[in-house]
Design a protein around this nucleic acid. Structure first.
Lengths: 335, 335
DNA sequence: TTGTAGGCGTTATCAT
DNA sequence: ATGATAACGCCTACAA
């Protein structure tokens, strides 16, 4: 109802100028104690709150960070929590937008936020995104996290996905699995490729042959994983273990294995990725590569704020955090 | 690098006044075709984008909605998606803040957003929140969803939680369970109480005695649910079915049942709430009350926008959507 | 059809 | 120690 009080109101009431009020409010240097007290008392009484819009307009910064994420699943929402934490601490507000894995949505979100609403961006790219011009156009500070934008010269925080793929595969090898397949993700995503590279490196280290048709690219979709696994299991030379680069894929794979009447971990071993809580709830529980999601978010926000305040060129900075394998029933042979 | 173009730049370049540019840009009434074309051409060339800050300052509205949610779990993130959808359509941007179920965070978030950043709020209250003064102080349009604020006279969208509690309990009764316990949520949350009321009503309808110690209030926390269930199962008069008002609680309960060596659904029946995907993945799969999360979000956003544009008093509007019971193995007796 | 002036709320600069 | 003025980018009377 009653409009928020402004500096003008206070000035008028106290018969002083707005500039004095402004100074008094900010405890600035040159203000008499009396006026300061008077101003602060009245401002409190009127419940004065500075208008951020006006401030931002004047200072050309909004103290707001635009965060664009492809979804808000378990891992992502933890990362966002990490961003939130650091941003809040540093006096920044966070605007979270979901692209729903859609390139179009991502573009719209970015444009909107760019219209003077945010000081910069913290972004994880959608799985549909193959070109990055819409980000370049933003012409604003940005940090990528989790899913980086290959073509863009900007700092990033990510998991060591290669390592993740490696330890998962190595573990399966050590458990005695001979013919290990992989459900990789979309080919344009670097996380997908890195995990695949880790898989390949592990095979190589242990001198295993790479079977081309043991490598299946599929979207982050449980149903596709189900179908892909069905196909894998009906090959003549059936794999005896599967590494999936996400837990959702792992669930799909597991359902296919069950339907086929095969037992896990005996007939088929399985390792997923993300350490989603669901992995410990299904039977058998699923081994998974854990990533420090919260810390990745925190690191991204820190990097962003650092970039904003530092003048140095940070475009080459890439923070890489380590994954950890959580071994559960799905890949643990009694042997 | 190069600062964004402003109306002034265009005006100067074209040797006309800013007001003319402003008009031309908006295809306003009185502008000669030539100038309009010239302006629009140049604005495109300069990649002109109106400064939303300036606009908001002037028009006293930001076209931004502040969304405050306790968390971003499966259900909530679907609700937010619904809000997003409608808001985007209507030309609004959404700022999502998580309170992490903390009263303090909720208050901070609300205050920050209120500082001229948003036109209003769409809120789901944290489980810690027992008083609502911090919302009243906002003095801005707001709509509550999912978890409503009892003390506040504002429109809301919610599930028919009573109905949800009722159908879950009735189903258990129909399956022949005799002694049905409930893991209710925090006592201050209306969703918790409504589901409990539905449970009580079902018992009453079928003339079952209500055992006071079959009613356990516990936080939305899997571990508490585990402990609570352990306690329930060690009573002399052990319950033979449990209705939990969230799936996370159901998981905790299930783990306790398994540890106790009891079988499900034979010894103990179980029904959860939310229809989280996890319920269909565990063994046995868990029956659960499904809520139309996406639609609830959409309805909330619609209500908000309506409220903003309508002058009518909508404070008494309460949209209530219906739940649906999804029956799975955990409560289906072969009998 | 176009231009001028004032204002949205704030701060920075320059006087006084 | 305080005030006046201009500016941030835009829009809307009102005037020409």
């Amino acid at each position: 109802m009653n409009k928020p009080a402004t500096i003008k109101d206070i000035a008028k009431a106290l018969q002083i100028s707005t500039s004095t009020v402004s100074r008094a409010l900010r405890n600035a240097s040159d203000v008499s104690i009396e006026t300061r007290n008077a101003v602060q008392a009245l401002s409190e009484q009127l419940n004065y709150r500075p208008n951020k819009l006006a401030l931002s307009l004047q200072q050309k910064q909004t103290h707001t960070i635009g965060v664009i994420v492809p979804n808000l699943d378990y891992v992502m929402s933890n990362m966002v929590k990490g961003i939130d934490e650091v941003a809040l601490e540093a006096g920044y507000t966070v605007m979270v937008c979901q692209s729903n894995e859609s390139f179009g949505r991502e573009t719209i979100n970015a444009k909107r936020l760019a219209d003077s609403l945010v000081d910069g961006f913290i972004i994880s790219v959608s799985s549909e995104t193959k070109v990055y011009d819409h980000f370049k156009k933003l012409n604003a500070p940005m940090v990528f996290f989790d899913r980086l934008a290959k073509g863009i010269h900007a700092p990033g925080v990510r998991l060591d996905n290669f390592e993740g793929g490696f330890i998962a595969t190595e573990h399966l090898i050590e458990q005695g699995y001979k013919n290990i397949a992989i459900l990789a993700g979309p080919q344009n995503l670097s996380i997908s490729n890195h995990r695949l590279d880790g898989y390949l490196a592990a095979l190589k280290k242990y001198k295993r042959k790479v079977e081309e048709d043991n490598i299946i690219y599929c979207d982050f979709n449980q149903h596709y994983a189900f179908l892909a696994t069905e196909e894998l299991l009906s090959k003549k030379k059936r794999p005896d273990a599967i590494f999936t680069i996400s837990d959702r894929l792992a669930i799909g794979a597991m359902l296919a294995v069950k339907e086929k009447g095969l037992s896990m971990p005996d007939d088929i071993g399985l390792v997923g990725f993300n350490n989603d809580p669901v992995t410990s709830l299904v039977a058998p529980s699923i081994s998974s590569v854990d990533q420090p999601a919260f810390d990745i978010g925190k690191a991204a926000a820190k990097l962003f704020i650092e970039q904003l305040h530092n003048d140095g060129d940070m475009r080459d900075v890439e923070v890489v955090l380590k994954p950890k394998l959580i071994v559960r029933e799905s890949s643990l042979r009694r042997s």
